[in-house]
Computed example of a mutant assay.
Amino acid sequence: MELNVVTIEGKDTGRKVALPESVFGIEPSDHAIYLDVKQFLANNRQGTHKSKERAEITGSTRKIKKQKGTGTARAGSIKSPIFVGGGRVFGPRPRNYRFKLNKKLKQLARKSALAYKAQTQMITVMEDFNMEAPKTKEVVAIYKNLELTGQRSLLVLKEANANIYRSVRNVQRAEVVTIADLNTYDIMKAKNLVLTEGSVEEFGKLFNA
């Protein structure tokens, strides 16, 4: 699959780049995508939720009323879950939600997500560019030239660039990531992928290593 390379002004450069068929041309696996996204979300959970059970509530332990003769149900402790201020039954406890997946499965998931973007023609290849200083206004102009204003997009760079990152982070519904940090969740969340020309060359090397 070949795509035209455009400038930051949105004009055609006359050059074309070929997307690796081994990455963008595979048959997508929905289940692999599901597992990888599930793992990503689970691994990002803090797991610090906690509620107090009856043994952890501060209060008197005396029997609050006599066992019989009151006409109501028996009750032994003010810390019982049936009373206001009592402990919670089977409340959440701190836990670790992380789980592992095979590397090959995660690689298949990323390839599948990229293949879906290629099939739906939601990939734009842009020439490499650099910024001498963080300028959000310049990035907004680039997205306007590419007709991506207001659309959720993901800019994929060959290597980290602090100035580009600081410029993009203030643009609504736009994110930037290096190809080494690319993950299935970010790919699927974005409507459009914007690949720099230099990053395209790395896809075959990274995913077929």
Results as ranks from 00 to 15, higher is better:
K38T: 10
V89A: 14
E53P: 07
S153A: 13
H31C: 01
F40L: 00
E2L: 02
G91Q: 03
F207I: 00
F129V: 11
Y165C: 00
A141D: 14
N130W: 08
I8C: 15
T7L: 00
E9W: 09
G59D: 07
N208A: 10
R15V: 12
Q151M: 15
R45T: 02
L105Q: 10
S77W: 01
K100S: 12
G59F: 05
G25V: 13
A75P: 01
R95P: 04
Q39L: 11
Y116R: 15
D36Q: 14
Q172H: 11
S112T: 06
A73P: 01
V156S: 15
E147N: 15
D30L: 11
A160P: 09
I64Y: 03
M126D: 04
F90Y: 10
K205W: 05
M122L: 09
K135F: 03
Y97Q: 00
Q67Y: 02
D128G: 13
E2G: 05
R98A: 15
A118P: 00
A180L: 15
V171Q: 05
H49D: 04
T70R: 02
Q39P: 06
K137V: 05
N208L: 09
V37T: 05
G91C: 06
A42S: 13
A118H: 02
M131K: 01
R173W: 13
E132V: 05
S199K: 13
D186F: 08
